[in-house]
Design a protein around this nucleic acid. Structure first.
Length: 958
RNA sequence: GCCGGGUUGGUGGAACCGGUAUACACGGAGGUCUCAAACACCUCUGCCCGUGAGGGCAUGCGGGUUCGAAUCCCGCACCCGGCACCA
């Protein structure tokens, strides 16, 4: 080993040259990053306002290119984080060089739980730790050479920013959804409708007769942001409610692993359900991956069906929701959710005559049975419910209902396979044609009736079936009663017929139901946007006037919510802000003189800031409006013939497929309805980048060992002499496989890292990081460097000779292909084409200047630092960022001759060099004369010849 | 269970409309340069048979359509995401 160290020393002196090594890359990169900053290279003009300039660039076609902004964690970046940022940066640079005015910047999503938890543990104010994290991120992102308009960057925790988050909340609060017009309108217009009597109040009294509190209640039922009792995930151990995504499948908190209980609490909600149809329908206007659109559609869960009323007792009825109203004749019992409120009202004192024993659960009276079943259902965790999903449980209520279509008396059950929160919380059970009803009917010995004729030959007696018949591609049978018959109809026609019949009879109607619930919008946390809401002494909520914004977070001593015994479900949340008496209790003049108020002490969820940030990038310093309308229209205005425009390209992880993207679309639509923005959609084109994974090495006990210490031995891997096994996983501390960008900067530089991440594979698939493969992209840059200058003297070595024909063709083919690939975000193949051209140029002794300059400009979006350096050494003034991307000359994009493949029966038997414009007949002649073809045919007759000039001929012998 | 996406050399991947399968890169082998090594450069590198020319077989598996299939259709296996008693 000793000799190796001395030779290392020797190679040090050797490297005192102009070789492109890590040290030189670092020097070049630092110099150009400083240059860009000094010259505001990436600053983008607006057409008007304080960011307008006289560069003329605002007159060009525009591109707004955006990343999902990061939540800056204390750990800093690893090599997996910047994949999407590099991709948008490359794309933005390409668009800039292609003549666009490009808006590209990055802000920070900075409210949220990690900073607050850190504050609770250390006493550091979340603002202090968050801002330190943001500084670290900014330094690391700058080191990558990402070209942002830094003037437009902000964090969601800046009061100048969340002032407008609060402003939007107030617009939502002060709006209602006009179902007839199909859009949101200011709440004042609803008040006018009530006041004029054009719209009746719920109880029919005149608006003027209602007390202020009564009016507030009426309006609250219409506002798009409203406080209401709702079942939430209450976690006493953490002292806070949790979003669904913060609760594990085991029904415990993701952080701390405490039990989570369902509790009804008064919380703020947003009426996103009013937009369910538009959120589905407008997906047709955006350019998003189909998989994401499907996920959003499924989440919203629109299903078309019918409500049907089943009379019970004398004056009561159960309304069920069904999507198979065509099978109404097959309904043989009803099931209500255990918690259904109607149950108490109608349960009789005693079991009806002849009630089977298995229906009663062994209880003496229906009331007892219902109470016992409810208790048992409530105690079940979600996991138990899931595990038992196959075994249906339930109990008879002692009540019978009447099937409206045939007058049959059918029993009513409660069972936990029916959910209160969906539809009407009640179903009509058609065991012959629904798998769950089938299982339940089998368990309780309930009758089944086949009303849709099976198409699979199983016959029409459900007693002989293994499961229900659910196909909708079949015809109705056994479905006739006086006044209505569905027999012989297809399922679709039967649905229409029964809807009409129900409507005429007043027994129901066709209707639409959604899976989507309103959005729970409040959290018991410190580190979030305060609600700009105060309550008067009657508990009526009032909006603060815009002039009182921003309502800043108060300083507090204790950031943590009050926590409780984790198992004690009978506790109530106490928010951190509520302990701040002087902040909570205020005297304000809201227009009717100074009065005492109590502030709302919940804060907004951390989705709030990310719902609208694209708009603030446009006009970040505007203190009179969220965004200037002219500027907003310039960057995000609708596309031709559509009501939607939006960000031209939005890149981020697929984990936000539903929540963030749905919430942001919802806010955009409210702002659109109220006239604040011109596009009904925020993000026109969405692209999901894949994840960079890394190898995880586990020892014999299954624990991860530090990946950096593992050595490859033969076919296996070894850590400290012990064999370990290898798998792929996320990059992270817990898996001990973190690779920091700093390591790559130190060995190769930022341009190499950028190239490597873009070359690994298509942007939308996940791929494994392999440190040893990074060197390939480094070699590309070294060769490029040597093609332009002499690495011993540092002198530019290109010559002014015109490139030869082969080089010209290689150049223009590369230009053509690279431009196409970059436009389509196919960076890996773009790099392959640049590499091919570079390899071609490497073989030329005297490199023509035109070839070198083409290479430099082709690679400039991908490796901007070395491109700048070479561009300037080639004698150009100014930055390569604002030069134009090369344009391919069609005359050189095709080869002078192409290789034509001649197949016999689909197998290649000869290759011919032919002119690209050769005629079919000429080519066929040549092909049939080719020696390989003659031999393969062996004199056999020719049945057919397929000619696809100039690339292919296929000869089919007879 | 349902819905999406995937499976191509030792490895990451390419083949865009059904028309030369394996571009580009990593790794590997050999060579040139060097006292030597590193770097760099050059050649080879899907598998099998063959000294060779050449031939055969290969895109997860089994069928099909077609003059021709990695690509389209049917069935199956495995992997990765998402949803999950949604009536």
């Amino acid at each position: 080993m000793a000799w190796r160290m001395t030779t290392d020393g020797a190679s040090k002196t050797m490297s005192e040259t102009h070789r492109y090594d890590a040290a030189l890359a670092a020097d070049i990169e630092a110099r150009w990053q400083d240059y860009w900053e000094r010259h505001g290279t990436y600053e983008t003009p607006n057409p008007t306002g304080d960011l307008a300039d006289d560069s003329g660039r605002a007159a060009r076609p525009k591109k707004f290119i955006m990343d999902m902004f990061p939540y800056p964690s204390g750990a800093g970046l690893h090599v997996g984080h910047p994949l999407g940022y590099i991709a948008t940066d490359v794309y933005a640079r390409f668009q800039r060089m292609s003549g666009h005015n490009v808006l590209h910047t990055l802000g920070f999503d900075a409210f949220g739980l990690p900073a607050e938890q850190y504050a609770v543990q250390t006493g550091t104010h979340p603002r202090v730790s968050t801002e330190a994290n943001i500084r670290t991120y900014r330094t690391q992102l700058r080191r990558l050479g990402l070209g942002y308009d830094t003037r437009r960057s902000f964090a969601t925790i800046d009061p100048d920013y969340y002032r407008w988050t609060q402003w939007i909340f107030l617009r939502v609060f002060n709006a209602w959804y006009d179902e007839e017009a199909g859009l949101a309108r200011p709440i004042d217009e609803l008040v006018e409708l009530f006041a004029s009597g054009e719209r009746p109040t719920p109880d029919g009294r005149a608006w003027a007769e209602l007390s202020p509190a009564e009016r507030a209640d009426v309006l609250s039922a219409h506002r798009l942001a409203y406080a209401a009792d709702a079942p939430v995930n209450w976690c006493p151990g953490l002292g806070t409610v949790l979003a669904n995504e913060e609760v594990t499948a085991e029904g415990r908190s993701e952080r701390g692993n405490f039990p989570v209980f369902k509790a009804r609490l008064r919380q703020w909600n947003m009426r996103i359900t009013a937009y369910a149809d538009r959120l589905i329908d407008d997906l047709d206007t955006v350019d998003w991956p189909e998989a994401i659109k499907i996920q959003q559609r499924n989440w919203i869960g629109r299903s078309h069906g019918a409500r049907v009323d089943f009379p019970v007792a004398d004056d009561a009825s159960v309304t069920v929701f069904t999507t198979r109203q065509d099978t109404l004749f097959g309904a043989t019992y009803l099931v209500l959710a255990p918690e259904h409120p109607l149950v108490e009202e109608v349960v009789p004192a005693a079991w009806p005559e002849g009630t089977p024993g298995e229906w009663t659960g062994g209880h003496a009276t229906p009331a007892e049975a219902v109470a016992a079943y409810r208790k048992q259902a409530a105690a079940k965790s979600d996991v138990e419910r899931q595990a038992e999903a196959k075994e249906k449980t339930g109990v008879f209520t002692g009540v019978h209902a009447t099937n409206p279509v045939n007058g049959e008396r059918i029993p009513v059950f409660i069972a936990d396979y029916v959910l209160l929160g969906y539809g009407t919380g009640a179903i009509m059970a058609v065991p012959a044609h629904d798998s769950r009803d089938f299982a339940f009917a089998r368990a309780f010995g309930l009758p089944m009736r086949c009303v849709v004729e099976p198409t699979d030959g199983r016959g029409t007696d459900p007693a002989t079936w293994d499961g229900s018949f659910t196909s909708g591609e079949a015809h109705l049978i056994n479905s006739s009663a006086p006044g209505v018959s569905l027999d012989g109809l297809g399922v679709a026609e039967a649905k229409e017929r029964i809807n009409a019949w129900l409507g005429e009879r007043g027994a129901g109607e066709g209707t639409v139901t959604y899976r989507l619930r309103d959005w729970l919008f409040s959290r018991q946390r410190y580190w979030g946007e305060p609600f700009p809401i105060v309550y008067d002494e009657d508990g009526v909520a009032h909006a603060l006037p815009d002039t009182m914004l921003p309502l800043e977070l108060p300083e507090v001593d204790d950031y943590s919510p009050r926590t409780f015994d984790p198992e004690d479900a009978d506790t109530q949340p106490e928010t951190p802000l509520s302990r701040n008496h002087d902040w909570v209790h205020v005297e304000l003049d809201l227009g009717d003189g100074p009065r005492k108020y109590r502030r709302e002490t919940n804060t907004m969820p951390n989705w709030a800031g990310s719902c609208w940030y694209q708009l603030r990038y446009l006009d970040p310093f505007n203190d009179r409006a969220l965004v200037d309308p002219e500027i907003e229209r310039y960057w995000m205005g609708p596309r031709e013939g559509m009501s939607t425009g939006g960000v031209d390209l939005y890149v981020g992880g697929a984990e936000h497929a539903v929540l963030h993207l749905l919430y942001a679309r919802f806010w955009q639509k409210v702002l659109f309805d109220l006239g604040h923005v011109s596009s009904a959609e925020p993000y026109h084109k969405l692209f999901n980048q894949g994840m960079i994974q890394a190898y995880v090495y586990r020892d014999s006990r299954g624990f991860p060992v530090p990946a950096a210490e593992v050595e490859e031995v033969g076919d296996g891997w070894v850590h400290r002499g012990e064999p370990v096994r290898r798998e792929l996983g996320k990059i992270g501390k817990s898996l001990k496989n973190v690779v920091s960008p700093d390591e790559v900067f130190a060995s190769y530089g930022a341009d190499t890292l950028r190239l490597y991440e873009m070359a690994m594979g298509p942007l939308d698939v996940s791929r494994p990081w392999e440190t040893r493969a990074v060197v390939g992209q480094f070699r590309l840059l070294q060769r490029l460097w040597r093609n332009v200058l002499d690495e011993t003297t540092g002198e530019v070595s290109v010559v002014d000779d015109a490139p030869d024909d082969a080089t010209l063709r290689a150049m223009h083919k590369a230009i053509h292909g690279v431009a196409q690939d970059l436009e389509q975000l196919r960076f890996n193949t773009a790099i392959a084409k640049i590499t091919e051209l570079n390899n071609h140029v490497t073989k030329i002794d005297r490199v023509p200047r035109a070839a070198a300059e083409t290479l430099v400009r082709l690679i400039a979006p991908l490796a901007p630092h070395i491109a700048e350096e070479l561009w300037s050494r080639l004698g150009h003034e100014g930055s390569v960022v604002h030069t134009s991307f090369p344009v391919a000359d069609p005359a050189y994009v095709t080869d002078e001759t192409v290789t034509c493949v001649v197949q016999v029966k689909g197998k290649v038997r000869a290759r011919l060099d032919v002119a690209p414009d050769i005629s079919d007949t000429e080519l066929e002649e040549l092909a049939l004369a080719a020696p390989g073809v003659v031999e393969a045919l062996g004199g056999a007759a020719i049945r057919k010849v397929i000619v696809r000039a100039p690339k292919l001929v296929n000869v089919v012998p007879g």
